[in-house]
């Protein structure tokens, strides 16, 4: 009896396995960052709107901030944009835009079309700083505390739930 049911049981188990695999598929390509709890990689990058001036990681010390890697070539960034705009409107967290592997001209046009939620935008033209941050896609966001330690990384588009439930509580916790 058991022997006859065995193929059916095996089939059901396989079905369960595939169902689990399909339901976790949107996060299974997300790689945990080894940078959490470490100092933010040092950078000194030109400002998008004033190519003559530069901003370094040391200039940003003193208050928590969110580093958001984005590019005009990135469709998910368009999808994410309203969430960043809402966060900017709330004024609760400083947002540093990191224009990743992009032409400054394209980035400026893109921001003119979609709005600019960033407190400051710096440019990583050749993707060098992206490598130091372990970025492998855009958008990716890093929450940095007031002492320049990375406390959280989000891969893919930010959602209101992530902002309200994770980013803001963590930022408040680090600011005090």
């Amino acid at each position: 009896m058991i022997g006859r049911l065995l193929p059916l049981i095996a089939f059901l188990l396989l079905g369960v396995l595939l169902a689990v695999g399909l339901t976790i598929s949107d996060t299974k390509t997300h790689i945990p960052s080894p940078l959490i709890g470490r100092t933010v990689p040092s950078f000194d990058l030109p400002v998008l709107y004033e190519p003559g001036s530069r901003v370094s990681n040391e200039d940003l010390l003193g208050e928590p901030y969110l580093v958001n890697f984005f590019g005009s070539w990135c469709p998910t960034c368009v999808f994410e944009h309203p969430v960043l705009e809402d966060l900017a409107d709330s004024g609760q967290l400083k947002i540093v835009g990191l224009n990743y592997r992009d032409e400054p001209e394209d980035a400026r046009n893109w921001l003119a079309r979609h709005g600019d939620p960033y407190d400051i935008i710096i440019t990583d033209y050749d993707g060098q700083i992206g490598i130091d941050f372990g970025v492998y896609a855009a958008p990716e966001s890093f929450l940095v505390d007031d002492e320049g330690i990375i406390i959280y990384k989000h891969i893919g588009a930010l959602t209101p739930e992530v902002v309200e439930g994770t980013l803001l509580p963590l930022a408040r916790g680090s600011g005090s």
Partner: peptide
């Protein structure tokens, strides 16, 4: 590379 991207 491991320092940036992990063992993966």
């Amino acid at each position: 590379l491991v320092e940036r991207y992990g063992d993966f």
